[in-house]
């Protein structure tokens, strides 16, 4: 099990990871979610002891990564695609990796078969596509038959077939009882693969909960009404005691409203409707909503708040939106 305790990483003035504490549950797929620059890659590099934490600690089965002898047998990781010498063959790349951890050579061929690279085993990595590079990286991660696998943005840049393959692979690995820890900045991707969610924003923990719980809590359904007679509609809604809010472009939305009841209410009051439609917030919206809310909540959380997080809606900086606050960004250079 991977456990983080108050893990902190500071680059100069930027706090990339800010007192992060959570456990990655065993035997399921855990999605590690956050906008770009939230500190996901930095956290993963600290788990592997590649980057040294400024504070706090991270353990794997109770040990620091550096204390593991032959770590590839405990935890396999894919951090970046094509971290391979371009002039080395796929098989040789896996071979040196296997030898370093005394993994039997037959595992090299097994791993190549597992990711479907057997036909190009003796081809130099230079000619590999991004998808093939990704598969080779995954073969590296699976080489030591580890209990824990960790993938950093594995579907980035892949074609639909590759994405499907990785999704199924992660599910299969979890079904075999392995712990899968996978980062993404796409909620929609996690929704179809993850059983558990850890959400971070600006290096801080925003949520740590089962996927089903996240969906239950955050999916918002509403009925949207559009009318050329807004005053009459609002009066009708107020008369019936229905809470409503303003929707986009002059529409009115009733959260958790009953489609039929609202239609009948409009008819009973003689309101002409141009639209009466159910609205389901996507999980992507829910994720953005959560990120935004949590950041705002922390921003107002008194003096404990660190200088790293300026209040603002996530994405406001690149949208050039009203919040207009410069967002502190973690370094996520890879």
């Amino acid at each position: 099990m991977i456990e983080l305790h108050d893990l902190t990483k500071r680059y100069g003035k930027t706090l990339a990871v800010d007192r992060l504490s959570f456990k990655v549950p065993q035997g399921v797929v855990t999605g590690f979610l956050g906008p770009n620059g939230a500190g996901k890659s930095t956290t993963m590099r600290m788990i592997l002891d590649l980057d040294r934490p400024t504070g706090g600690r991270v353990t794997i089965d109770g040990k620091r990564y550096g204390q593991l002898s032959e770590p590839l047998k405990y935890i396999g990781a894919l951090l970046e695609a094509k971290a391979v010498h371009p002039g080395r063959t796929a098989r040789d790349h896996l071979l040196w990796l296997a030898q370093s951890n005394r993994i039997p050579e037959r595992r090299v061929d097994e791993a190549l078969g597992l990711v479907g690279l057997t036909p190009v085993a003796r081809k130099r990595a230079r000619g590999f596509s991004l998808g093939m590079g990704q598969r080779l990286g995954i073969a590296c991660a699976l080489l030591g038959d580890p209990e824990i696998v960790m993938f950093d943005e594995p579907v980035n840049g892949l074609d639909p077939e590759g994405i499907l393959w990785i999704r199924n692979l992660m599910k299969r690995l979890a079904a075999e009882g392995r712990t899968v820890f996978v980062s993404s900045h796409l909620m929609s991707e996690m929704a179809v693969t993850a059983d558990h969610l850890v959400v971070i924003g600006r290096g801080r923990l925003l949520a740590d909960l089962p996927m089903a719980e996240f969906i239950r809590r955050n999916s918002r359904s509403a009925v949207r009404l559009r009318t050329p007679q807004p005053e009459r509609l609002l009066d009708a809604l107020a008369g019936a005691g229905v809470r409503h809010e303003a929707g986009p472009t002059g529409s009115v939305e009733v959260v958790d409203g009953d489609l039929a009841a609202l239609g009948e209410l409009a008819a009973a009051n003689g309101v002409v409707l141009h639209e009466l439609s159910p609205q389901q917030a996507s999980l992507e919206e829910a994720f953005m909503q959560m990120t935004a809310d949590a950041v705002e909540y922390h921003a107002g959380d008194g003096p404990g708040r660190d200088a790293a997080g300026a209040p603002g809606v996530w994405g406001a900086d690149w949208k050039g939106g009203a919040a207009g606050q410069p967002a502190a960004r973690g370094t996520e250079e890879n």
């Binding site: 590099r45 592997l48 550096g66 770590p71 971290a83 391979v84 010498h85 990796l97």
Partner: peptide
């Protein structure tokens, strides 16, 4: 090539 991170993950000492 960025392979140093693969190497150090395999041999953290």
């Amino acid at each position: 090539s960025g392979m140093i991170r693969v190497t150090l993950a395999a041999v953290p000492q």
